[in-house]
């Protein structure tokens, strides 16, 4: 079945809320369609008491979601990507540690839906590329949903699993329509998006589309890529990556967020620490955004994020 990114999100939230009466959807603009259209028409199916508009009080939205969960409700919170860092303190110091410090006396099943948002003319404050910061917070699971195909299975898995989860949507994929993947998503797992023999390309989120295009072009040039979507950024599923790198002996890691201490740093470390290290035939390359303030201008932005050409260049030159 063909699905749109946001319509899949909307339908998934609706289905969750119809099935579980303890669920609550809260966030800014929720009663007027939500941040991305995720709650449009929801009040036809779900009691308005469970669809809660919140003030622009980001830390307190997150804190109150924890209080709701401790009291037996199941909050789903939406936060605009550029405001997400405002939530970091409460996530790190309250939500993510709650299970541990209370020795599991209280539930902390808080589902936070936000976004990785990286584009030109958004400006330094208008983007959201802090997924590595949140992935550092122990006790929080972070997953990045790169495609409309995965929205339903990943949001459902995030809702169903215990403890707090941050789901990062990809703003630049929100208009996409594609065939839905109906297999259940196993929380924490990574996935192979394209099988190949010569080079393993590991990526996630907004860079996935570019990587797949680069892989198509590499194939035409006779280089076969295996593309892995990391998906779960907080606890990288190294097994799949390790197996793939043992097969291809080459690895490139790509993302649209900054290189310095980004997710790619952890992926590379994990490869180096694994058996795959002994099979490598070349150094591992990271193709990431520049370590700079995110530029506003379109021209400068082109230089900021890795282009498809840069990714292709890294792939085809591997092993040479």
């Amino acid at each position: 079945m063909q699905v749109g990114y946001i319509s899949a999100l909307r339908d998934t939230i609706k289905d969750i809320m119809l099935k579980d009466r303890a669920s609550i959807l809260m966030g800014m603009n929720i009663s007027s369609g939500g941040l991305w259209g995720e709650s449009r028409g929801l009040d036809e199916y779900v009691s308005q008491r469970r669809i809660i508009d919140t003030p622009y009080s980001i830390p307190s939205i997150i804190g109150s979601a924890l209080g709701l969960s401790m009291s037996g409700a199941r909050p789903i919170v939406t936060i605009k990507g550029e405001y997400l860092l405002k939530a970091a303190d409460v996530i790190a110091n309250k939500v993510a540690i709650s299970d541990y410090i209370t020795n599991n006396q209280f539930s902390s099943d808080v589902l936070i839906i936000s976004e990785i948002d990286i584009d030109a003319q958004k400006g330094a404050q208008g983007v959201s590329i802090y997924e590595s910061v949140f992935s550092q917070i122990h006790g929080l699971k972070v997953i990045a949903v790169s495609s409309a195909a995965d929205v339903r299975r990943m949001v459902t898995a995030a809702y169903d699993c215990e403890g707090p989860v941050l789901v990062l949507l990809c703003t630049q994929s929100m208009d996409d329509v594609c065939e839905e993947n109906t297999l259940p998503y196993e929380m924490g797992s990574s996935q192979i998006l394209r099988e190949g023999e010569d080079v393993t390309v590991i990526t996630y989120g907004p860079a996935v589309k570019k990587v797949l295009m680069a892989a198509d072009e590499a194939a035409e040039m006779g280089v076969s890529c295996e593309v892995i979507d990391v998906v779960c950024l907080s606890d990288i599923d190294i097994d799949l990556i390790e197996k793939s790198v043992i097969k291809t002996a080459k690895a490139v890691v790509v993302h649209d967020s900054r290189k310095n201490l980004g997710i790619a740093s952890e992926v590379v470390s994990k490869i180096v620490e694994s058996e795959a290290f002994f099979y490598l035939e070349d150094k591992i390359l990271r193709v990431c955004a520049k370590d700079a303030v995110v530029p506003y201008s379109k021209d400068e932005f082109k230089l900021f994020v890795p282009s498809k050409e840069e990714i292709l260049d890294a792939i085809v030159n591997m092993g040479k």
Binding site: I62, G63, M70, P75, N93, T102, F106
Partner: peptide, 27 residues
């Protein structure tokens, strides 16, 4: 914290209890 007596917790970060308490009152 102690759920047995409905003591939902103390905090070392002053003010971080307010919003959690608000959520509990919402519930």
């Amino acid at each position: 914290s102690d759920s047995e007596v409905n003591f939902y917790g103390s905090t070392l970060i002053p003010s971080s209890q307010f919003s959690v308490a608000v959520g509990c009152a919402m519930a």
